[in-house]
Simulated assay, not measured.
Amino acid sequence: MNVLFDINHPAHVHLFKHAIWELEADGVNVLVTSRTKEMTTELLDAYDIKHIPLSGRRPGTLGLFAEWAVREVRMLNTARKFNPDVVVGRLNPPLVHVSKLLRAPNVIVMDTEIKSPAIDRAYAVLTHPFIDVYCTPPSIEPPHDGVDHHLMDFQELAYLHPNYFTPDPAALEQFGVDPEETYFVLRFAGWDAFHDVGFTGLSPDGKRELVEYLSAHGKVYITSESPLPEEFAEYQLPIPSHLVHHLLYYADLYVGDSGTMSSEAAILGTPAVRVSSMVSKDSESIFYELEHRYGLMFAYADEVAALAKVKAIVEQPETKTLWREKRDVLLAEKGDVTAQLVELIWKASGQKRPRQIVVESPSGEVTEPQ
C-alpha cells in the first residue's frame, strides 16, 4: 500500500509522525510532502522523516492563494509518480484536489474553525466537496452527507498520549535546562495564517509586563512564530524545536497566544493561560473541555485579566501536583488518536491490515483500537 501524507505546519509533524511510523512498521510505503513554514522541515529532518518540500510560505491572503496554485501542480506531479492508495493530511485545497484527480481516497484530520465568514465560505467551496473521510471534534460538522465522518479525541493525543510520549529530563539537561528549576514557557504566535485574519494576541506592552513579572519568579523561555524582538533575545528557547514537549511537561506555567501550544501544555498537565482576541468567539471543543471540564487551561481575550490569572497560578504553591491529578482524569477518559487514525487509513484503502495493534489504556485495560 502507498500512503501520501501532506504536512504544512510544525504541529502537523507531531500529529502524523507516529501514524507514519506505525504504517511503515506495517510495511506501507509512505511519501511525505512538506512546506517550508517556520520549523516544519527542520522537525521532519530531526525525526528522520524523508520529505519533499513543495512550496514556501507567502505573506497575505493573495500570497496564500498563489502558493496553493503552485503547490497543487507540484503535488499532482509528485503524487502521480507515487500512485497513492490513500492521501492523508489537514484540510487544504491542493491535498483534496489531487486526491480526487488521482482517485485516491483522502483522510482529513481537522480541528480548526475559520472565524472569518468570507474566508470560511471560500475555503468551503474549494475543499468541502472533495472530502472523503473527515476526522473532527464534535464542534465541527461534516461538510456534506457523503462524508465518512468520525469524531476524534483531542488531536494532540496523537503524540502526547502516554503510549507515545515519555518526558525525559536528560533531553533538557544537555541544553542547560534544569527540569527541577522553576521556569515558564511563553509562545508568541505570528497571526498571519489565513484562519487568524482579524484577530490578535498579546500586545507588545503585554509581553513586556509578562516577561518582567515571570523573570522575577523563575527562568523564562520564549518560542516565537515570528522573529523575536531584540529586547527578548536573552529568553530565546535554548533547545531544539523537537524537544519542546519535554520543556512544556516540566514547566511550572505556559502562557501564550498560540492555540495549539496552549492545549499541548494543558494535556501535559502544565497550567496553561491562553491570551487571544479569538477567545470570545471560540466554539472549538478542545479549548472548552480543557478549561471547563478538566480545569487545565484558562483562556482570556483581555490580557489584563490573563496577567492576573498568571500571578494567581505562580503564587499558588501546590499548582503542579494539582495539575498532574487533573491530567490523570483527562487521560483516563480520552483515547489513543494515532491508533484511531491508522485504523481509518487502512479502512479507506480497502485493504486488510497485516497486523493488529492492541493499546493499553492508562488504567491498564488492553483493548483493540476502534
Rank of each mutant, 00 (worst) to 15 (best):
L4P: 00
H14A: 04
L15I: 11
L15V: 09
K17A: 13
K17G: 12
K17F: 12
A19F: 06
I20Y: 01
W21K: 13
W21Q: 15
W21V: 08
D26H: 09
G27C: 08
G27F: 00
V28W: 00
V32K: 02
S34C: 02
T40E: 01
L44S: 04
L44V: 05
A46D: 01
I49W: 03
H51Q: 01
I52C: 07
G56W: 03
R58V: 07
G63N: 04
E67H: 05
R71L: 10
T78W: 01
F82S: 00
F82M: 06
V87E: 01
V88W: 04
R90Q: 11
L91G: 02
K100Y: 06
L102C: 05
A104G: 02
P105L: 01
D111G: 02
T112I: 09
E113Q: 06
I119D: 06
A122V: 03
A124S: 04
I131P: 04
D132R: 02
D132A: 05
P138I: 14
I140D: 05
D148E: 13
H149W: 09
F154K: 03
A158I: 02
P162I: 02
P162R: 12
N163D: 14
T166P: 05
P167E: 07
E173H: 10
Q174V: 05
D178P: 15
V185Y: 15
W191H: 11
W191N: 08
D196Y: 06
G201L: 03
P204Q: 15
K207R: 12
R208A: 15
L210G: 00
K219T: 08
Y221A: 12
I222P: 00
T223D: 14
E230N: 12
A233G: 13
I239F: 13
P240Y: 03
L243Q: 14
H245R: 12
H246K: 12
H246R: 07
Y254C: 10
T260Q: 10
S263M: 15
S263V: 09
A266N: 04
A266E: 06
V275H: 06
S277E: 09
D282V: 13
D282T: 08
D282L: 15
S285H: 10
E289W: 14
Y294D: 07
F298I: 11
D302A: 10
A306S: 04
K311T: 07
T319R: 10
K320H: 09
T321F: 14
R327C: 05
D328G: 13
D328S: 09
V329N: 15
A332H: 14
E333L: 09
K334T: 15
V337G: 08
A348C: 05
S349V: 00
G350R: 00
Q351V: 08
P354C: 11
R355A: 11
I357K: 13
V359E: 05
T367W: 12
